[in-house]
Nucleic acid binder design. Structure first.
Lengths: 215, 215
DNA sequence: GTCTATATTCTGATAGAC
DNA sequence: GTCTATCAGAATATAGAC
């Protein structure tokens, strides 16, 4: 307790501003956040924001960059691990992302919104993501389909389905909680349940042979 | 051709403004859109915006309301149709939403963002949505689980999974296209494929018995 | 490094002519 | 109904004292 309190007090002004900015930007986006909001949230003077980060836009890009890194961090390694099989990769991926988003629930919508409005802003950082299509993971999947372990399914559908099952409960939480009339506590339990259920569902979808059934 | 052209010319100023506002608001959100942007996009004078809609906020709320209605329109009827079974309901729902979002790709992210930032702004309109939990559809699902046709699964997971599979390819399209390196044309084909595949996947997930497997 | 006061630009809205 | 010109307030950024 004392430690955490101390840590908060020990934060440099620069850190305070970044923390406040991250909170507000990820929640409301660039345009909806005023520099005064950030200053107030951080408990500092407005002028200090420009002193440390030159401009609102520069601060935003910094936060953006860091959030994006957080988003893709670990993907490359997990996707290219030669020592784990498909099932293990899926399980690891699902778990680490659900943990990440449980801690930062606004992160997915923020990234997706930004990527939608500025699709080319991340071409540099997106290398890690683009590499996915050439990753060990995708190769393993394709191999398994060739060998008949899994029926054919385009990588697009596979990745879309996996990401959607992980991400949607976070970006749609207000709607889902309202519709199903559950408490915050129950919601969090559901999210935890999904760590084990999503891998099972993904395998079930893979095996469903949907590609041939629709022809 | 002539007809469509004529229609565009025949649009009243009020309609022009609404169309421009819908396009920009759904794409960038309230704060990021300037009234001058709307006026330019609509090809009209800035003053006319206030003449017709009084203020930016009133115009936004109008667009919001209409978009939300578009989003929930038809749900209530489809969910409460006594003459269709579970499978038919899922198929209809998936198809009509994929068609809707194909036409308005920015709609899902817009609604989800708004609902996240102003969870209570739609309590009135959300009745239609809230009614889902008491709908014939949900009753049919629960019935099927009781009778052993389907294994047990919480409504939260069922709805979350169904919505996610429909919605995510639209809100994550830039990322997905980049990762899987497909063209816009291929992307649209994938989306169309999903109309038939999602119902199959949903059934496969239902039957996977994930709930018992995780215990 | 931090603050107060202020400059500057942007933005929503309106007045008044046509 | 539509336009030009303009106002009032908001929001970003900086100057200069401490």
């Amino acid at each position: 307790m004392a430690k955490q309190l101390k840590k908060k007090i020990d934060q440099t002004t620069e850190e305070k501003i970044k923390i406040a900015a991250r909170k507000l930007f990820t929640r409301k986006g660039f345009a909806a956040v005023k520099t005064r909001d950030i200053a107030e949230e951080a408990g500092i003077n407005l002028a200090l924001l420009n002193y440390y980060f030159r401009s609102k836009e520069k601060l935003f890009k910094l936060i953006m960059e860091e959030s994006f890194l957080q988003f893709v961090k670990g993907i490359a390694e997990q996707f290219n691990d030669e020592n784990t099989n498909i099932d293990e990769k899926i399980e690891k991926l699902v778990e680490s992302y659900i943990d990440l988003f449980s801690q930062y629930p606004d992160l997915p919508l923020f990234i997706l919104s930004e990527l939608r409005e500025h699709p080319d802003a991340f071409s540099s950082r997106l290398d890690a993501v683009t590499g996915i299509s050439r990753s060990v993971f995708v190769k393993q999947i394709r191999e398994a389909m060739k060998n008949g372990v899994y029926p054919e399914m385009h990588t697009f559908h596979f990745l879309a389905n996996m990401m959607s099952l992980i991400v949607f409960p976070f970006i749609g939480s207000p709607m889902l909680m309202k519709i199903t009339d559950i408490s915050v506590k129950q919601y969090q339990e559901m999210i935890q349940e999904r760590k084990k259920m999503i891998p099972i569902w993904i395998k079930a979808m893979l095996k469903s042979n949907a590609y041939k059934l629709i022809k």
